[in-house]
């Protein structure tokens, strides 16, 4: 049956080759992929600019009146950019402020914990494969599953509160207090993603020549010194890649947090992608222009970060090639 199916697929492509000639077949091969990229990635990119410079609540691009840069002006209109309440679009600026704090803490925590874990997993020891798997497992879980697992643990009658009460404390409203909720979005997001970065750093650590360590051991160099003088400098290219990758992903954090806290309490954990999503799709009035403008601003930040990443990985390859 499978061979019949394979022959069935052969026929149209053979016909195409008779029609266009063998020299043009490469274009036939790249066509489906380019079509999908063109329609769903490149075209939206251009349309996004159109949405950003037009106004109104109309969905069809042709129906939208041209408004120039007024969407940008509205988003950026603030008496004091550090106090979201003084902004015309205070929800946007709150999301920007929340995202900035989130990214700062999450990325520092993520890189530090991933580095520590990678260093430990790089040691010679039994069950190394098992431990590596343990730290990696949450990476594969869906954001919704991650959020529900933690929501169940953090709820007022949850197991964490049982431990707090059991050790003599008072119940903590982990997801209902703005400060706690914000901290937990960071912890949960580190928990879910650290395995990925650990793996990249581990690959970097394993590329460091073992004879360097043997030499240091012979000289009786203390561990801490070995870390600062050998490990860290040689791992730097990988660290840079991990840092920028973590930054790019942290700016786009949405799903786990959306299901875990819904952006609340209030707007304490509302981040920038949620602002875009809600402005465009979830509100009663779909303010597409503002959402598209906000996406362009996020896209700009991501572009800078991606260029940094390309530079970092080019450097990493350069160092590895030496």
């Amino acid at each position: 049956m499978i061979t019949t199916l394979a022959r069935l697929i052969d026929a149209p492509f053979d016909a195409l080759q008779r029609r266009f000639g063998a020299a043009r077949m490469p274009y036939v091969f790249v066509a489906p992929n380019l079509l999908v990229f063109g329609i769903f990635v490149a075209a939206p990119m251009i349309l996004n600019v159109w949405y950003a410079i037009t106004g109104g609540t109309q969905f069809m691009p042709a129906d939208r009146p041209y408004v120039g840069a007024s969407n940008f002006a509205e988003l950026l209109d603030c008496t004091n950019h550090f106090i979201p309440a003084t902004c015309k679009q205070d929800r946007f600026w709150r999301a920007v402020a929340n995202t900035s704090w989130f990214v700062a803490f999450q990325v520092i925590g993520l890189v530090a914990i991933s580095l520590l874990t990678a260093l430990i997993l790089n040691r010679r020891m039994p069950w190394r494969g098992f431990f590596r798997a343990v730290f990696f497992y949450p990476v594969l879980l869906s954001p919704v599953v991650v959020a529900l697992i933690w929501k169940w643990i953090l709820q007022p009658d949850g197991v964490l509160n049982a431990i707090v009460v059991g050790s003599g404390g008072a119940r903590v409203p982990f997801l209902l207090d703005p400060g706690w909720a914000f901290s937990w979005t960071i912890v949960v997001s580190i928990w879910a993603h650290m395995g990925f970065y650990t793996l990249i750093l581990l690959a970097g650590l394993q590329a460091i020549p073992a004879d360097l360590y043997e030499a240091a051991e012979m000289d009786g160099t203390p561990h801490v010194r070995v870390f600062w003088r050998i490990t860290l400098p040689l791992l730097m290219p990988n660290m840079l890649v991990v840092l920028v990758l973590a930054l790019i992903r942290a700016v786009q954090s949405f799903d786990e947090i959306f299901v875990l806290t819904g952006g609340g309490p209030g707007t304490a954990t509302q981040y920038i992608v949620q602002y875009i999503y809600e402005t465009a799709f979830a509100n009663q009035t779909h303010i597409l222009g503002l959402a598209a403008t906000a996406s362009m601003l996020v896209g700009g930040v991501l572009l800078v970060l991606t260029l940094l990443q390309l530079a970092a990985s080019a450097r990493a390859r350069g160092e590895a090639g030496r």
Binding site: I39, V41, A42, P44, Y51, Q252, I276, L288, V298
Partner: peptide, 27 residues
């Protein structure tokens, strides 16, 4: 073509939500 494909890496879905939805609906 190769460069074009690799450069789409820089356009995550979060950046083109609104127009991507328009195109999907339009189709």
């Amino acid at each position: 073509i190769f460069l074009f494909i690799i450069s789409t890496l820089m356009i995550p879905i979060t950046v083109v939500l609104v127009p991507a939805f328009l195109i999907v609906t339009g189709l």
